[in-house]
Amino acid sequence: MTALGFLYPGHFAEDDYARIEQLLGSDVRVELVHTGIGEDVYQVEALRATGSAEKLAKDVEELRLSGAEAVVWASTSGSFGHGWEGAHEQVRALARAAGMPASSTSFAFVHAVREVGVRRVAVAAPYPAEVTALFTDFLRAGNVEVVASHSAGTAAAAEVAGWGEPQVLALARAADTAQAQALLLPDTALHTASHIAALEEELGKPVLTANQVTVWEALRLTDRRVNAPGLGELFTREPIVQV
């Protein structure tokens, strides 16, 4: 049994993790610890405060006791909001506090883009434009070429958490372009685990979503590769590895 640990802000799309655990169909256990979010608003300073080292260190002890083998800070904006170097320091501090390998959703996106073998991506974000711009800057710092982006301009995670498949598909279509080899849907408040297959069929390319890449990143940190077609191309590029 491989136990994966996640620090998840709030309670917006937490059920995505139970769904992903089910779709993995293997001996993988997902452990979720909820962190406080302060004010639910897509504003840069508020997003940075969500991922402060003090807050993350305070909540990681519960994951240590659960037997988790790796921890991922399951917030895209709460990591890329600190910039490339700041996000690295955030992860280093989390690893020290947890005593285990650590990463964040923003780095998960960079690593997942490499995993699916693409370079040019489109970004479909629910955020305001200024927040989306920070994410695209982060991707470019990780040598990912962003050829198109779309910002839905929503004000808070609570609104995004209520979106269903029609809204998610509309968001993806708004950003997609023929030049993009993959489409990225940031924000762990967005329910996507049940829609990835439909998104990839609709767009004809790999689709990477926040909660999907977050779990994949934790598996990567524990040297697991699990084949799960329901979770899209990201989870079908390597054979199952039994540990």
Rank of each mutant, 00 (worst) to 15 (best):
M1K: 11
T2F: 05
Y8H: 03
A13E: 03
D16V: 03
Y17D: 03
A18S: 13
I20F: 04
E21R: 15
E21G: 13
G25M: 14
S26H: 13
V33K: 13
V33N: 10
H34I: 10
E39D: 12
D40P: 14
T50Y: 11
A53D: 14
A57F: 05
K58P: 02
E61L: 10
E62A: 12
S66P: 00
W73K: 02
G81R: 01
H82I: 02
H82Q: 08
E85N: 08
V91N: 13
A93G: 11
A98G: 02
A98K: 02
G99H: 14
P101M: 07
A102L: 11
S106Y: 02
A108R: 04
F109Q: 01
F109P: 05
E115H: 11
E115W: 04
R119T: 14
V121Y: 02
A122N: 03
A129R: 12
T132M: 12
A133L: 12
F135G: 06
T136N: 03
F138G: 01
F138D: 01
G142H: 11
E145A: 12
A158Y: 14
G162C: 09
Q167S: 12
L169G: 07
L171W: 01
A172T: 04
Q179M: 12
L183N: 06
T188C: 15
L190E: 04
A193T: 02
H195N: 10
I196K: 00
L199F: 05
E200W: 04
E202W: 11
L203D: 07
L203W: 06
G204A: 11
T209A: 15
A210I: 03
E217N: 09
A218K: 00
L219D: 00
D223I: 07
R224E: 09
A228W: 09
E233C: 08
F235Q: 05
T236E: 14
T236V: 15
P239G: 12
